[in-house]
Amino acid sequence: MEHLSFEFDGGVHAPKSGKAYAVAGVVASSNLEVLAQPQELGGRVRFEVDTTAAHFQDAWRAVITDFIERRQPRDVLFSINDFAAIPPVVSLRLDQAWEGLE
């Protein structure tokens, strides 16, 4: 298991549903669970990732950067339990979790 933490400047959208959390995905082989929680982060976004696949830090950074560029979220904590999902699946779950809070 490897733990990765990322924090980035967020975009223009704060979560607006008023929900305390949204979950997308399930922790199963080649899949992951993304828990999104609104949190006062001064406009930033944070990602806490636990993953079974070590040494993929660059790939995570690329997927997350792309996601932030695409959806422009701010003030959200994303907690992730990953079971070796490929990047497009990570991307899809991030979108779904974010859409759950929108």
């Binding site: 080649s30 696949a53 070796a84 490929i86 990047p87 497009p88």
Partner: peptide, 10 residues
């Protein structure tokens, strides 16, 4: 039309 997933496996 070529319709593919970007990865065949990890």
């Amino acid at each position: 039309v070529q319709m593919v997933e970007t990865f065949q496996s990890a």
